[in-house]
Write a protein that binds this DNA or RNA. Structure first.
Lengths: 124, 124
DNA sequence: CAGCATCCCTGATGATACTG
DNA sequence: CAGTATCATCAGGGATGCTG
């Protein structure tokens, strides 16, 4: 951060906290990551993400769509076909969280090591 | 999933998901952001973050300490004095989430605009 | 197929009181 | 000061059933 003045953490975070929670939510992260690769239909995405209920996937997609991250393309055919795609804004968001995810992945070992030491230190 | 070729989202995300949730949690983000600037004592940090209960701050700090992000320096004095500082690993984590937070902040307008349109479109 | 509505339950969070 | 312990609350998330 700008190490200089007092960035008043809360002032910066409060307005964007809800959005942050949307993109970093359990399913939000996975949906954005999946869509970063390509567009998906609803059921396809559900299989791709794995473990998500219909309700949560629908809710997540609605939230992301409302925030302008995801474009919903519903075609008037029988049976219904709905494709979900990242918008440009969504692609930026997805790249950010994907970056964070990859950093976490890279440093996994360090975290596990730290945990081991932490636990060992207080279980004599 | 894993049916697909490329970035197998779940394989990458699953192990690190818990860590991701720690650093992107409501208070985790704010604590990391605050500590990015300088070290803090417990009560200081509580005031700086604002709105966090003692319980949640303690819990958040313990989690971050266990993951190796935060160093806890408890001095044996009366009254007690405990300083919290980012480790190198923690600084990396903090910079990642702070980057994400700033991106969110930068694109706030775009998100609000998208929401307005979304809401307007279905409240005729 | 792509959802929405409903019920239900657990775990996360907050308020309060107490301790070393 | 720096927490821990306890209790109450409440929203997130899953399971199920129904519709266009």
């Amino acid at each position: 951060m700008s190490v200089t003045a007092s960035p008043d953490v809360n002032r910066v975070m409060c307005p964007s906290r809800l959005i942050l929670e949307h993109v970093t939510s359990r399913w939000g992260v996975l949906v954005l990551a999946a869509l970063l690769e390509r567009s998906y239909r609803f059921s396809e995405l559900r299989r791709e993400v794995g473990g998500v209920s219909e309700k949560m996937l629908a809710q997540t997609l609605r939230t992301l769509e409302r925030d302008g991250f995801v474009h919903r393309d519903a075609r008037p055919v029988i049976p219904p076909r709905v494709d979900y795609t990242l918008t440009e804004l969504g692609r930026e968001a997805a790249e950010q969280v994907w970056g964070l995810a990859r950093w976490t992945e890279r440093r996994l070992d360090a975290v596990f090591l730290a945990r081991e030491e932490y636990d060992k230190a207080r279980t004599p």
